[in-house]
Amino acid sequence: MPFPLGAAYALVALGFVLVLNATTAVNFAHGESVVAGGFTAVALTFFLPPDLRIPGLILLPGVVVVTAVLGLAIGALAYLPIRNRPPVSVFVTTIAVGMIVANGLNATFGAAPRTAPPLIGVGTIDLIGVSISRQSLVIIATACVLIGGLAIVLQRTQLGRQFRACSQDPEMARAIGIRLTRITLLSFALGTAFAGAAGLLLAHQFFISPADGAPLILKAYIAVVIGGWGSLRGAALGALLIAVFEVGVAAISSQPLAEGLLYVIVLVVLFLRPQGLLGEPQQVRA
């Protein structure tokens, strides 16, 4: 079942787009933010009583807070000082932040994979005759709740309207009194917290190691291109598509072939439909 991984990819891709829409810049440290979330969960586990088997989901608020702070730091150090330079500069600064996070974790925790406690219990559940792992269900459910929450915030709240105004027309947003810097930093915090949450969700079922960031940012990046640059709905859908594709193709051919085909498809999509499979929702400024 590709959906637990797909659901986690979707969280990662959504966080990527949140930052993208606020800044028009690609945050290359986003994969490392997932890793940071996973390792935050691993570290927080030390503070849980070991024998009580407390569900890992209880760590979610802690992980979200820590990674949101990381997001603020990324925004303040790697974006704000160079916001008026060409977008290429932000690529480089966020690559640098990614290096710092990944190698910092590597030096602190070691290169080996770690695991966080199970999110809620272990084992499988019978669902209409099909046995499904409890972990997978919780991953999917948590991702759905977070994505739904984001949708409500963006559509129904004043803050959400400000987010959307900034992504559609930053000059106009500034002109009507929205504090652009504040919204930008909030986007970094929220986007990175989404990545962090994905890290927690992944950490038990799929482990987490310091080198996991690069493949994750690549998947998110591809998801956003396939789903349409800047589209939140497209990013979530693109992430699911990638997960289904990876699992489906690898199961009938082989893993390296599935991966290779994914890259070929990216190149073909960029060639034929640079606006993404599902179209671009707005004019591209990056």
Binding site: V26, P86, P87, V88, F91, L218, Y221, I222, V225, W229, P256, E259, G260, Y263, V264, V266, L267, L270, F271, P274, V284, A286
Partner: peptide, 27 residues
């Protein structure tokens, strides 16, 4: 296909190319 792309697509396309070549070299 790649050179006319805008910066963020160009970066991804060149990254995908690199990954593809690495995959071929390994397999």
């Amino acid at each position: 296909p790649v050179l006319r792309l805008q910066s963020h697509y160009f970066a991804l396309a060149t990254l995908a190319l690199s990954q593809l070549l690495l995959l071929i070299a390994i397999n």
